[in-house]
Structures are given as structure tokens and as C-alpha cells.
Nucleic acid binder design. Structure first.
Lengths: 231, 231
DNA sequence: TTAAATATCTTGGTACGCCATAATACGATT
DNA sequence: AATCGTATTATGGCGTACCAAGATATTTAA
């Protein structure tokens, strides 16, 4: 990694992160990985203390997360961590299916073998993570897989949408991947996507991507209705 | 529980709008209808003066619009009105196609005649607006048409996504509908969607919706590349 | 025991001030 | 005159303090 292309090589990359962005990431993280549970109140001044920043920042962060759908504001009562109801989760999976299916079809139609190779690599990382029982790794590499799917055909807007929706069902994702057999079935379904792409089979890739999301959705639904009684 | 139902019936709806929401709507409006042009700087203190609110509010609003994609923040230089490039617009149309196609298919599969009736009503409003050369009305009723499409099958999340994306291409929409023949062609294409839904023809509805968006996208592209030279 | 009154908590909103940085203007040096 | 360094200004990033009003908890009075 020495001597890259001229100017770019010596450019000094500043952290460039503002305090607000740092705080935003922290709080989003905290919500996504369950430190704050759905329904928990997010009291501004408490967050100030916990994050060590001013109310100004906290308020901006809360507003941002609100527009992401991770935080809900109740009339005159302040923000809470958004509750994900059953039906909404289903809708999110459905949208993901439509968009990931679209991306898969586009990948297949492009007919660039490098795409399937890149996807295979990501898929192998997923398999490795499953083998090592590294569930955080599974999630990460699954994200990489889908990001590849979208970025290989330059669909960053759609990827943004998928990403936005995905954070809202993150805790469901981490539950579905722990499901019995998911470590075998999941990668197998993803392999079908890659195969269809490699064959240049657009409709097949679309269908395979849809199927994969559909099965994740079904598992999520089962998990959700199972948990209902535990709550 | 008994008293709640009765109470809800006569409950007086408060404006319930916070100052922040009011300001958010104002600024979004201003961007969407072109009062602020793409690339314009949005200086916090100037906005405070123009809106008559404090900087805190303005900052929250800017953050919100940033996450909507209407405002872009430049490193150390502050926010500007986001510029919509060619390719991004195309991607947005593509996503709309996928989601509206999905909604249309679901409507067709549901087989409820009330859906087609409601859509026909919206469509007639669109035709009337075209006849009266009321372009604002065309946009409004087109929105109603699509909202109906989504809400009739309870897909409010997808509708939210479509809505979010649509504001970013709003100025393109207002240009495409002014195009030659769009007043005839547009409603005709939408009628095809409604017909397919009425017939219960899922794939047909999907395809009709896709076609409609695709043609809007093509016009937008033409308009965009045409304007390039005018600018 | 219940109902009214009061205190507390928390958000919505405002005002003001400080610092850091980018851009610009300006002045000095060669 | 061209270049370099410096002062100024505009602006965003961030913090603190304060007030009003709604929601909730707590206490007091009947």
C-alpha cells in the first residue's frame, strides 16, 4: 500500500466526524444492539449525561433517528425507542424482497463474472462466520453481500433505502440467523442467487432473492409471535 | 376501556404541530417548490431570521431534511440544497417502479372492487385537473392515486419510502407533466393499471405500473439532458 | 378513602456566548 | 509585481442557562 496514485496518496484524512455524528452512531448502535429496548424512554438530559454532550447535540440526534424510524416521538411526552410491530416488520421484509430482487436481476443481466465472484467471496465469509459461531460476523458479511449486490450495478439509492429499513429490523435479523438450520439454509439460498447471476438468469436471480427474504420474513414472524407470549 | 371509545369520538384535535414541524414543512416546501434552488447555501442564521425561530429549531430542521436527502452537508462549509444528479433521479424512478408495481400487483390480487373504484375516482380528478390546466392539482391527485394504491393494501411503509423519494424529484415531476401529450398518455397508462387491477390480473397490474413510471423516467431524463444546455 | 392541590420531571423553545475553521481581504517583503 | 503571511469576517459546531407548559407523581385536605 505504498505510493498510490499521486495526490491521493498523501492526502491527510481527517477524522472529519463531528461530535454529533459520533453521538448519532453511538445512540443508533445502542438501539440496534438492544442496549435501549423498544419502548424505553430516551430522556434528553439522561442521554446528555451518558454521552457527555450537550442537549443541542442530543436533540439533533433524536430528530435524526426519528426520521430514520428508530425513535418515535409521543405527543408532549418525548421520544421513546420505536416499537416494531409485527405487520411493519413484514412490510419491511417485503420491500427488501422487491429491491434486492431487482438488484439481483440487474446483476444477472449485466453479465459481469466479477460480480458473482465478489458475491461468492462474501458468501464464503458468511459461511466461515457461521462455522465459528460468530453471529456478529454473520450479520456484517450478510450486509456486505447485499451491499455488493447493489453497488455492483451502481444502485446506491436503493441500497440506502434497504439499509435504512434494515436497521429497524436488526434485532429480528440477529434472532433469525440463530434459528435452527439457518446456518445451512441461508447460505444455500444465497448461493442460488449467485448461481442465477452467474448464469445470467435475471428472473431466476430475482426469484432467488425474493425467496431468501421471504424465508427470513417467515422465520421473523415465527420468532415475533413466539416472543409475544414471553413478553 | 369503556370510556375511552366515547371520549375519542368527541376529542378535539389540537393542532398538535410543534413549531419545529411547522418550520420543517416550510423549509421543505421552499425547497420542493424551488424557492431555494439546488446548490443554494442554507445559512443557519439567515433561516432563523426568515422563519422567525431560534437556531436550535433551524438546526433540527436541517438535520431532518438532510436525512431525507433534500439537504446536503458539506464538510466544514454547512448545508446546501441537495443537487439531484441525472443518475440518482433515474434510480429513484426505478425504485418507485418496483414498489408501485408491487402495490399494484397486491391490489389486483386482493380482488376488492372498491379498490378499482377509488383509483378511478382519483384518476378522474387527475383528468379534470389536466383539462383545467391545474398542474398543482395534477400533482396532488397523482399523489392521491398512488397513496390509494398503497393504502388499500395496507402498505404504509412502502408508501412512506415512495413519498420520501418523490419529494426529491418533485421539480422533475412538475416538468414531466407539462410535457406534450402527457395529459393524455399519463392518465391512459394509469387507466391500464386500474383495468388490470379490476380484472384481478396481478402481473398485468405490475407491468402497467412499471411502464407508467418508466415512461415518466424517460421524459424526466429527456428534460434533464435538455436543460443541461439551457443552464 | 377519595379528590383536589401541589411539586416534580421533562420536553419545546429561546437567547446568548464561545471556539474552530474557511474564505477573503489586506498588507509586507522580496 | 508576485508571493507570502496575517487579520478579519462569516459561519458552523457546541455549550449553558433559562422559561413555559404538559404530564406525572405526591401530598394534603375533605
Amino acid at each position: 500500500m505504498s505510493g498510490d496514485l499521486q495526490g491521493a496518496a498523501i492526502r491527510v484524512e481527517r477524522p472529519a466526524k463531528t461530535l454529533r455524528e459520533l453521538a448519532l452512531d453511538k445512540v443508533r448502535e445502542a438501539i440496534v444492539n438492544g442496549y435501549f429496548r423498544p419502548g424505553d424512554r430516551l430522556v434528553e438530559r439522561d442521554l446528555c449525561a451518558q454521552l457527555g454532550v450537550s442537549r443541542t447535540i442530543v436533540r439533533e440526534v433524536l430528530r435524526h433517528l426519528e426520521s430514520e424510524g428508530l425513535v418515535a416521538n409521543q405527543q408532549n411526552r418525548g421520544p421513546i425507542v420505536a416499537q416494531l410491530d409485527h405487520d411493519e416488520a413484514k412490510q419491511i421484509y417485503e420491500i427488501r424482497g422487491a429491491l434486492e430482487g431487482m438488484a439481483a436481476r440487474l446483476c444477472a443481466e449485466k453479465g459481469d463474472p466479477a460480480i458473482a465472484d465478489a458475491l461468492d467471496k462474501a458468501l464464503q465469509d458468511i459461511r466461515d462466520s457461521y462455522r465459528d459461531k460468530d453471529m456478529a460476523g454473520v450479520l456484517t458479511h450478510t450486509s456486505v453481500f447485499y451491499q455488493t449486490l447493489f453497488s455492483m450495478v451502481d444502485r446506491h439509492v436503493a441500497w440506502g433505502v434497504v439499509n435504512l429499513l434494515t436497521v429497524r429490523i436488526n434485532h429480528l435479523r440477529s434472532m433469525t440467523i440463530k434459528t435452527e438450520n439457518r446456518g445451512v439454509q441461508g447460505p444455500a439460498q444465497m448461493a442460488r442467487i449467485v448461481d442465477a447471476i452467474r448464469r445470467g438468469d435475471g428472473p431466476g436471480a430475482y426469484q432467488a432473492a425474493m425467496d431468501h427474504v421471504a424465508s427470513a420474513s417467515a422465520i421473523a414472524e415465527a420468532v415475533l409471535s413466539g416472543r409475544q407470549s414471553v413478553d
